[in-house]
Design a protein around this nucleic acid. Structure first.
Length: 407
RNA sequence: GGGAGUGUUCCCGAGCGGCCAAAGGGGGCAGACUGUAAAUCUGUUGUCUGACGACUACGGUGGUUCGAAUCCACCCGCUCCCA
């Protein structure tokens, strides 16, 4: 099976500028392609998964990915799909973020021997001269046409600032730059990037009279149409400090039935034949598929060892009972005890299980807290050092959240 | 530049000068039911307090008033109409 077929069968491809040509190129040539990333946070999150996976697929097939960090464009902000104007970031923040991205990406891509490279568009965007840019790039864009683009529609209703309006020009210029300097023939991106990609292709055509190519992939959404990887506490991060491997594992383990197969196809490397088999599973059988999904993804991001730990921790917790090996842990200090006692409400706040004491009280009142498998029913309950069996106790919030407190 | 609006708690959105920590919805959290799923039902959802209550909040700054999210002035942001 060719990469192209693989991508297609996994349902990753949304749109292409030249389906036949692209298919043939991917089969017979070594294509240099790029995907742009905004460096708005200091870690990649689940929303970036698709990009990484697609790049990885293509790299394995002998193509050369360019990761373009938007160190320049981030200062402008992509208006696509945004309701509000993006917060401005300082250069120092952007540089820091870019560095973090680079580290995390090395899990997915092989950067040795220039098999993949990382570039920063700030390197060529920042030195640009306004007049020159307008004359060389700006002339090729029709405002009428841009306004008609789907991605500006919602923003047109709420207001779109000039700086954001220019984002498309900058991204198009990136493509032109990479085309001319890095031999980059193709740009990929989420389907929401279609208009921006087309912009680059047209710019290349007008400037060089040559043809470049574009392909977008399906956005990873839940069956309900929501973006994957957003929890109410924010994004699910790939950085183990921001989202622990266990939490990361649990995020996928708890995914909706309807979404498992799709996720396996789109963002794991599990062979299609295996996935096909799972697609027939129903009801609780799907739990096995979810476990697989969670394991594969955790392995991809945090390595096999961490994935194994997370899996075992989860199985122990939800199966036979407490095994506290790999649970998130908080150390309780001597100073935390008053007269040898520590209020459970304070304990909950200290472990981060409750954001405030009021919330902690509520949790107890509603029967959501258990310590070492005993439900806590009294708001005023205390724990003493003696309650820490062998120096630790397991605090359980709700049904799924476990936390270990140690002395 | 002129005119008309508008800014409320995580989000949307209601809000009479006191009865407003603020309706309603969404979301979140917890409970029941389950398969660590979905749907459904129940409770809950500013901080501190065991509780009474105290404190901080309605774009910002001042003011009127015994008392302001609600009235006034100025400022800032956004939307719309005219230029």
């Amino acid at each position: 099976m060719t990469v192209f077929e693989e991508l297609e069968k996994r349902g990753l491809i949304a749109q292409m500028t030249h389906p036949e040509v692209i298919k043939e190129k991917l089969e017979k040539e070594h294509v240099t392609f790029y995907i742009g990333f905004d460096a708005t946070a200091d870690s990649l999150h689940v929303g970036h998964f698709l990009q990484m996976i697609v790049m990885s697929h293509l790299q394995r097939a002998g193509h050369r990915p360019i990761v373009l960090l938007g160190t320049g464009t981030t200062m402008v902000g992509d208006p696509t799909g945004k309701t509000d104007m993006r917060q401005m970031l300082t250069e120092a923040q952007i540089d820091h973020n870019a560095e973090c991205f680079r580290r995390q990406m090395s899990h997915f891509l092989d950067f040795s021997d220039d098999k993949a490279i990382i570039l920063r568009n700030g390197d060529w965007l920042k030195p640009l001269n306004y007049i020159t840019f307008l004359r060389e790039v700006g002339v090729h864009f029709s405002v009428n046409k841009m306004l008609a683009a789907e991605c500006f529609k919602t923003r047109l209703e709420n207001g779109l600032s000039f700086i954001e309006f220019n984002y498309m020009l900058m991204q198009s210029y990136d493509f032109l730059y990479l085309y001319q300097h890095e031999g980059c023939q193709m740009q990929l991106g989420g389907n929401d990037q279609w208009a921006n990609i087309i912009g680059g292709i047209e710019l290349i055509r007008k400037v060089t009279t040559e043809e470049a190519y574009g392909m977008t992939f399906t956005l990873l959404t839940t069956k309900e149409g929501k973006k994957m990887g957003k929890t109410e506490n924010g994004a699910v991060w790939l950085d183990g400090q921001k989202t622990s491997p266990y939490d990361f594992f649990q995020y996928w383990r708890n995914i909706a039935d309807d979404d498992v197969i799709n996720c396996l196809k789109m963002i794991t490397f599990v062979p299609l034949a295996e996935i096909e088999a799972m697609a027939h599973w129903k009801g609780s059988e799907l739990n096995t598929a979810k476990e697989r999904l969670a394991f594969e993804l955790t392995k991809l991001v945090h390595g096999e060892e961490e994935a194994q730990k997370a899996l075992e921790a989860a199985q122990a917790l939800f199966g036979t009972g407490a095994d506290s090996e790999n649970m998130p842990t908080t150390q309780i200090l001597d100073d935390d005890f008053m007269d040898g006692k520590l209020a459970v409400t304070d304990l909950l706040v200290k472990t981060g299980l409750a954001p405030s004491k009021g919330e902690a009280r509520r949790l107890i009142q509603q029967g959501g807290i258990a310590i070492d498998d005993h439900k806590v029913s009294d708001i005023g309950a205390n724990v003493t050092k003696a309650d820490f069996k062998e120096g630790q106790m397991i605090v359980k919030k709700g049904k799924k959240i476990f936390h270990k407190a140690t002395l």
